[in-house]
Write a protein that binds this DNA or RNA. Sequence first.
RNA 1: GCGGGCGUGGCGGAAUUGGUAAACGCGCCAGAUUUAGGAUCUGGUACCUCGCGGUUUGGGGGUUCGAGUCCCUCCGCCCGCACCA
Length: 832
Amino acid sequence: MALGKYDPESVEGKWQRAWTESRCFEVEADPAKPKYYVLEMFPYPSGKIHMGHVRNYSIGDVVARFKSMQGFNVLHPMGWDAFGLPAENAAIKHNTHPAKWTYQNIADMRAQLSRLGYSYDWRRELATCRPEYYKWEQKFFLKFLEKGLAYRKNSPQNWCPGCNTVLANEQVEDGLCWRCDSPVEQKDMEQWFLRITDYADELLKDLEGLEGGWPERVLTMQRNWIGKSYGAELTFQVKDMDETITVFTTRPDTLFGATFMSIAAEHPMVEKLTGDAANKDEIDAFVTRIRNMDRIKRGADDLEKEGVFTGRYCVNPVTGVEMPIYVANFVLMGYGTGAVMAVPAHDQRDFEFAAKYNLPLKVVINPRELSDKGEVLDPADMQAAYSDPGILVNSGQFDGMENEPAKKAVVEHLDKSGLGKMTVNYRLRDWNVSRQRFWGAPIPVIYCDDCGVVPVPEKDLPILLPENAQVRADGRSPLPEMAEFVNCACPKCGKPARRETDTFDTFFESSWYYLRYCDPRNEDAPFDPAKVDYWMNVDQYIGGIEHAILHLLYSRFFTKALRDTGFVSTTEPFANLLTQGMVLKDGGKMSKSKGNVVDPGAMIAQYGADATRLFILFASPPVKELEWSDQGIEGAFRFLARLWRLVEELEGALAPVMPGSYAEPGSDAAKQLRFKEHDTIRRVTRDIENEFQFNTAIAAVMELVNEIYGLKDDLSGEPGALSSAVATAVTLLSPVTPHICEELWRAMGHAEPLAVQAWPTHDEGALVKDQVTLVVQVNGKVRGKFDAPNDAPQDVVKAMAMEQENVVRFLEGKTVRKVIVIPNKLVNIVVG
RNA sequence: GCGGGCGUGGCGGAAUUGGUAAACGCGCCAGAUUUAGGAUCUGGUACCUCGCGGUUUGGGGGUUCGAGUCCCUCCGCCCGCACCA
């Protein structure tokens, strides 16, 4: 069989068909075999794959093929995160149903992905918008309701006017909608929440177990997001009212210095406190202004502190001081209790606020240096709050204590009268999963005038998204207007009732898809627990850093919630996480507006899938950003053509031997090639296994190919040596560029596909050289090189080093003080 | 402010973890071959120097026979969180 010219298109099509026909990537759970689950974050079916997808999925494919060749039973699935807004917006634009747009895009993208030759088990493909899929999350929701993990409440929520829906806290970035960048507003709404805060501590603690497997950056981001802080809740009596206000503070040790109180504009007490205030109008105007302020402005750190006095006071429980209560613009309802005891001497914000409104400062923490001198900080001298540690003063019985132990002592003192307790506070809020959009999974509850909120009985699932819905031009969901959807009978009393018209946040779907892949066609259950037990956890998860908090936190929570509702036994979904870097062009992100988008389809058409994969894996290590280079992909193509020509030239001489199989004594050239061959096996295996350093693994194969080119003429009489080395190069490269490698493997005479061959292992014996080259240094500077027998005795090596011509020159007239010998590597002669 | 990461040729990036800095590739230069080529092959390519040699991993200092790698310090860049009480 003559190879002819390298034509990627025909080679790639041929092997893609061959893999499909041989079903070599289809796998089943088999407890007798070691498993490996490699998963790439599934795409949103936008219609077109981009270079980010190619990078993500190429990384995953190398891992999958490599592990498979190493003998693992590899689960490598692909599917579609198919609910979401773009489908709805496209449907509005083209006056069609979101499903139609979505399924068309899925078909298009599946075809594009297929052209890249990824080793997916396509039988497991899923789309989250299919009732067979979302049915099960409706069931999960019912279980969550039963367990109290889902609940409904009315509260101020993030409203995106651009998307016409609420957003979870995680979906608001710098006050803007994560999807459309509209400024997010606050709106009081009745919504469904999942109690992710119940898991705050576990989510935080279990991050320790992910150490090493997950990037430090992601762990840190999750820790910050959960935001655990230790402190106390202290309760203050409102003067002349039968009301109390509870604050959260990390500094209970400064309680004696609390001179006023600040509460958030959204605090439920505002109305009660100001009901009969003389300046009620002024207060209301202030509260309204702050509440309507856009989030970016309100969150800016240069925003001037301002507030308004409510006319009410509360009583400091330890000093009896009457503390004026202010509504202040810097107090957030979403953190702690929405009320802060103000200690202007020891908190910078309170300091600034006190200066503006002329409120008293009281020093209660004294710097140690001053205490040692018998002095006390004078409020009149203070230019800023003193927030460092110190010794308590002006604090009654606690005077003289260190402030750290005083925290506990003060709280214990208050605890006797029920006014204080140590608490832990989290920044994390419960997850709002309601969305006022159409293209999502319906939330399975019914509202009955008599019975209230009634869960849909399990037998009535799935609640289907109507196929005859007509999307509205204004973007609002058509569901509330659809009588046939809304009107239903109360499952409890049978009277007419109304169906919930909100749908789930799309992150609900992506929080468990990795479980469904284990058993995607199950019609009786979300998955067979035995299959999930076999395949889970995901051994290697690969995706973008943008999901560091959103999807990755939700999925971790979901796994724990499903564990507690009896669906799974695992507690963390993803053992190892690789966050791949972005693909850039001209130093920036590829975007339509910049006009710097490189279309993968065009690259594949011009250079082939193999060259595209090779370049994207070679140009940069996976975690780093990758700068797209048109010359770079050309170079990748050139290398493949060079490899092709090598096999073509040697074709008649090559025998279908296994990689690394040549072991005859042979000529020096054969020995040299054999060394390179086994060294390459060692390096490539190590580079892929340890750190996914595909770039250096590829470089190693290139070196081997260069070596074969250099030695081939000397080895024309030893075809076995050449055959073995070529087989090695082709095999080691095959996870990266599988098509061309299959073709060359076949050209060597092999009958079985390369994809199902065993990954080669190196022979230590081949790495032992008779002669080694050592470097001689004089005072740490390289002065010569020489060859010596492998593992020659130190004395011999030392003597040889000293005899080197150039070394002699540098030793002249000097005294040798010390000679350091690193066996088979280096000699350093220290002279003085 | 808090936390995480990074800094190596013209460029992307290597360096078996303390042992020849710049592997591999891109680009560039020269030559060969070719009707021609953006194809292919050979050689060169960190900087200074004709050369001997000297200098070089953001700057400075330290440990060591030996430092890109370890320690201290300063500078710069990127990312995340942030009026968090």
